[in-house]
């Protein structure tokens, strides 16, 4: 492919630069410069007090020190917990469904219907979805009305006033919004596995479980890594759902306040120094994760192949 692009006499190199220019110009203006100024402000005392703007005065790492003394770690913990509550069922059901959907011995009726339905919540406006959940799970909302009329509880369960209820709802929504997407990614990965591996395993009398753990899982590892890391980045970005569900307050007792909600509060109160230091810490974490994404997508091809061979040997042994 690449060989045929060899220049004959005319050089087309400048067109390459021209074609990629808009992308890089837009990226420079709307991402790089803002990122640079974000990092810059993180070293300054710069906030609004009443009607006065204090600063910007250079304070070195003071903002970072203040951050560690604040509730930052608590909100990091909240974000992590909320992400895990959503991610565990998400990866469990996605693996299960992806394995089932690609298993030819299983005759699933309405496969296309199920795929369409489970992917749907991914496209729903998260803020509207949260508003819907807030209305449905409010103390005198339809869910409580339903549970009471079914005789399961005798007085309304206050979902949004208990830690378990509020965190559980955020986790449930994240699970619903993402498990369909993950299922489809994993399905594509499973369908990309060399069918000969499955045939060999079946000939050797492997059952569903053995095939899943010995062949499927090892072969989709790059995609699993990709799913895990992108989901972590998504988890760090968690904002719309807890923000709308709790009206930005993270109730009860700020147990569902995420790190981006914390950032958002500082941005709204024009506390730029602190907002800057939160952003920089987030940026560093995301940069590390992005390198992970890079390698999960561009990892050298020899590794999976080696694994395939190993799996083939294991299946034959």
């Amino acid at each position: 492919m690449k060989g045929s692009t060899k220049r004959k006499s005319v050089s087309y190199a400048k067109w390459g630069y021209i074609f990629i220019l808009p992308f890089f110009a837009a990226f420079l203006i709307f991402q790089m410069i803002p990122l640079a100024s974000t990092i810059y402000y993180s070293f300054f005392e710069y906030y609004r007090s009443g009607l006065n703007i204090i600063g910007p005065n250079f304070v070195g790492l003071e903002n970072y020190k203040a951050l560690l003394g604040s509730d930052f770690t608590k909100y990091m913990g909240n974000t992590l917990i909320l992400w895990i509550i959503g991610f565990l069922p998400q990866i469990f059901f996605s693996l299960l469904l992806a394995a089932w959907f690609t298993d030819l011995r299983l005759k699933i009726r309405g496969k296309q219907f199920f795929k369409v339905v489970i992917y749907m919540p991914n496209l729903i406006m998260a803020s509207a979805f949260s508003m819907l959940f807030f209305a449905l799970f409010s103390d005198n909302g339809p869910v409580n009305a339903f549970l009471i009329s079914a005789g399961l509880i005798d007085k309304p369960f206050r979902f949004l006033s208990t830690v378990v209820g509020a965190r559980g709802l955020v986790g449930l929504m994240n699970f619903l919004m993402w498990f369909g997407n993950t299922t489809i990614l994993l399905m594509a990965a499973i369908m990309g596995i060399n069918p000969a591996l499955f045939e060999a395993a079946e000939l050797d009398g492997c059952n569903h479980t053995q095939i899943f753990f010995k062949i499927t899982l090892p072969n989709i590892r790059p995609i699993l890594v990709y799913v895990l890391i992108t989901s972590m980045i998504g988890g760090l970005q968690m904002f719309d759902v807890p923000q709308i569900l709790t009206n930005g307050k993270g109730t009860p007792n700020r147990t569902v306040t995420t790190i981006i909600m914390f950032l958002n509060n500082h941005l709204y109160s024009k506390n730029y120094g602190m907002a800057g230091s939160i952003s920089v810490i987030l940026f560093i974490i995301c940069a590390v994760l992005c390198i992970g994404v890079y390698f999960s997508l561009n990892g050298d091809d020899s590794k999976p192949k080696k694994k395939k061979k190993k799996a083939a040997r294991a299946a034959k042994a």
Binding site: Q31, P34, L35, S37, T38, Y41, I229, T230, I233, L236, Q237, F239, I260, L263, L267, Y272, A275, G276, S279, V280, L282, F283, C286, A287, L289, C290, V293
Partner: peptide, 9 residues
Amino acid sequence: AMPTQVSAL
């Protein structure tokens, strides 16, 4: 996969 939130400020 870099989120836009990190440079929101």
